[in-house]
């Protein structure tokens, strides 16, 4: 099966006069692509654009060989079927008034006619595939646990036989043991169905588990890109380093990353920089050049790309505590 890829090419997204995402390019492949960022980084906005829910201010969303807005009716329907979302909160993603079976059925009949018997058989099959008891089809979302809801959302997405899942914080609303099981499920489904994943999260461990390549987003810009394992082991951008050092680990006292304490107290969300590096106010390595000249994504060797003037120093351990 030749898969059509989903790509963002130099995409800029804005709400009104506020630009949220600045010229981001990425491509979703079968290895899994992670989009790492904290709240306000523009990651969810980018996901909405890739799902065709938001029109780019500039740049292109491309599926296969065609640009999204230029697609005809049939192609657009194919795109709709091929790219499916799994959002953070399963209780939000399912119509609270519909039974689980009806929600899945809606996906099944969105593009094809299906008789009742075939539909019910397929619903049972889909629920079983995500590890749910088919009897739960008769339940409403609030009667399920958080993990079961998230499984139901995944079952609905699979109903249209998608090629790409856009996963927006798929586990962060769940208990830890449930999180682990959902990640197992996602890993198995990818192998069985040949799915491409775009995983949006602030949880580095989840990205490490599911994505071969990752992009780190800060204030709407990609600041670092590379192989996930490599990126997490040896960050080249001070922000990536701060993110990974901030993750609490069992048995290791959490170090407050230098990049966190360096932030002048009282400043709120990262300001969008007109000039200079967007991270400069929080960066412990910021020098005059960082205030004057915005860094562009450049090759840092080994398939790594990074937008930092002092990436080499970060790589060589200048920020190690």
């Amino acid at each position: 099966m030749s898969r059509a890829t989903l790509r963002a090419e130099d995409v800029t997204l804005a709400y009104g006069h506020t630009t949220v995402v600045h010229g981001v390019s990425l491509s979703v492949d079968e290895g899994g692509v992670g989009l790492i960022g904290e709240s306000g980084s523009g990651k969810t906005t980018l996901a909405r654009a890739l799902l065709g829910l938001l029109k780019p201010r500039s740049g292109r969303i491309v599926y296969g060989s065609r640009e999204l807005p230029a697609m005809g009716r049939g192609e657009r329907a194919r795109f709709r079927g091929a790219v499916q979302p799994v959002f953070q909160d399963g209780s939000e993603a399912l119509d609270p008034r519909m039974r689980i079976g009806a929600s899945v059925a809606e996906a099944l009949t969105a593009h094809h006619r299906m008789d009742r018997a075939a539909r019910e058989a397929r619903i049972a099959e889909l629920l079983a595939d995500v590890g749910l008891d088919p009897a739960l089809a008769a339940r409403r979302p609030h009667q399920l646990s958080g993990g079961q809801r998230q499984r139901a959302v995944i079952a609905r997405a699979l109903a249209v036989r998608p090629e790409v899942l856009v996963l927006d914080e798929p586990t962060s609303a769940l208990d830890v043991t449930v999180q682990a099981r959902i990640l197992d499920l996602l890993q198995r489904l990818r192998e069985e169905h040949g799915l491409g994943y775009l995983l949006i999260t602030h949880n580095l461990a989840v990205v490490d588990r599911l994505c071969r390549t990752s992009h780190v987003l800060y204030a709407g810009r990609v600041v670092e890109t590379g192989a996930t394992r490599d990126l997490l082991t040896r960050p080249a951008h001070p922000y990536t380093l701060a993110l990974r050092d901030a993750v609490p680990r069992i048995g290791v006292p959490t170090a407050v990353p230098a990049a966190v304490t360096a932030r002048p107290a009282g400043t709120g969300a990262p300001a969008v920089a007109d000039r200079g590096c967007p991270f400069r106010h929080r960066c412990p390595l910021a020098v005059d050049r960082c205030h004057a000249e915005p860094p562009v994504l450049r090759d840092a060797g080994g398939g790594r790309r990074v937008a930092c003037h002092r990436a080499e120093e970060v790589l060589s351990g200048a920020l190690r505590q």
Binding site: G131, L132, G147, Q148, D184, L185, A205, R212, G302
Partner: peptide, 22 residues
């Protein structure tokens, strides 16, 4: 500098679990 061979070869921290509903 080399990426892992496959994503499923990732962390050894998670023992195999059954996919039963939580």
């Amino acid at each position: 500098a080399s990426p892992p061979a496959s994503p499923s070869a990732s962390p050894p921290a998670s023992p195999p679990r059954t996919g039963g509903a939580p």
